[in-house]
């Protein structure tokens, strides 16, 4: 609103033009009148443009959000505080995190947190889908933020090849080439993508949970998100491993283990057998 005011004053100054030479009394009177007029204009503009919602301290919550608030006040308030404003040293403020964040954290069982540690682990979810939606609605109405689009199939029309390229550029540094996850510093980690649903992957990209960066719609468009989800769900998870047992897709480290545990062990027994036959 202050910017409104400034702009208006500047406009007046420009409209006024170069003043003619007048007597001192008239100049003073004119100045007083202009001041009053400007003040009235500014005040009027304020009352017209100021957001009316801000006048109300507690906007009425919709039905679902009210249900969500009830759940929040029982299960989440300890760490996230009253009105989700956060508690120093326990839990962050949830103002502005959006429904996407709530959906990811609650539906994957990460919230409620089992204990304070480097990073939350995936667990069986505590809340039903309906309750998760209510919680998400509450947080959404409280402070706004990103929202996952409707529907369970968010990879519709996704291009697997394009998704693969995006995945390798944006995701594989942490989640690894096979989506099995990887280590970050100090006990943090990028989790395995295998249990994640379409909606959870989408929500994670939108909200950047834990140590993950946010991939907003400006960085990765919704179409590209669909490509990535299609690659994860249709290639990484359904790949039949044409080469046989995939050794957990942990890269060359388990391959090195296998050559000793399988190859060398089998052949040492073979040489014991052959030498024993002399």
């Amino acid at each position: 609103m202050t910017s409104d005011n400034d702009r208006r004053r500047g406009l007046l100054a420009r409209l006024r033009g170069r003043p003619a030479v007048r007597s001192r009394g008239r100049r003073r009177l004119g100045a007083a009148v202009r001041l009053i007029a400007a003040l009235m204009l500014a005040g009027g503009a304020y009352t017209v443009f100021a957001p009316g919602a801000q006048a109300q301290d507690n906007p009425p919550l919709t039905g679902a959000a009210a249900e969500g608030k009830a759940l929040f006040d029982v299960s989440c308030v300890t760490c996230h505080g009253r009105n989700a404003q956060g508690v120093e040293g326990r839990g962050p403020s949830l103002i502005g995190v959006g429904a996407a964040s709530v959906e990811f954290q609650v539906s994957s069982g990460r919230m409620p947190l089992a204990r304070q540690e480097a990073q939350a682990h995936r667990k069986p979810p505590v809340f039903t889908d309906e309750q998760t939606r209510q919680l998400a609605q509450y947080i959404q109405e409280l402070g706004g933020g990103p929202v996952v689009p409707e529907g369970d199939d968010l990879r519709d029309g996704g291009n697997v090849a394009a998704g693969g390229e995006l995945f390798r550029i944006n995701c594989s540094q942490c989640h690894a080439f096979g989506g099995g996850g990887g280590a970050l510093s100090s006990g943090k980690f990028a989790p395995s993508l295998h249990p994640a649903t379409d909606r959870q992957i989408y929500a994670a990209m939108l909200s950047g949970p834990q140590n993950m960066p946010v991939f907003g719609d400006n960085q990765i468009t919704p179409e590209q998100k669909a490509d990535i989800i299609a690659y994860i769900q249709e290639t990484l998870k359904t790949d039949q491993d044409p080469g046989g047992f995939n050794l957990g897709r942990y890269g060359p480290s388990t391959e090195g283990l296998a050559i000793f545990l399988v190859g060398i062990v089998a052949l040492v027994f073979a040489s014991l057998w052959i030498a024993g036959k002399s």
Binding site: G164, I169, Q173, G182, A183, G251
Partner: peptide
């Protein structure tokens, strides 16, 4: 995937 200078996967290890 094909090598691109900006693509480095986690668990990129050499052979044992």
């Amino acid at each position: 995937g094909p090598y691109e200078a900006w693509v480095v996967s986690a668990a990129s290890q050499p052979d044992w």
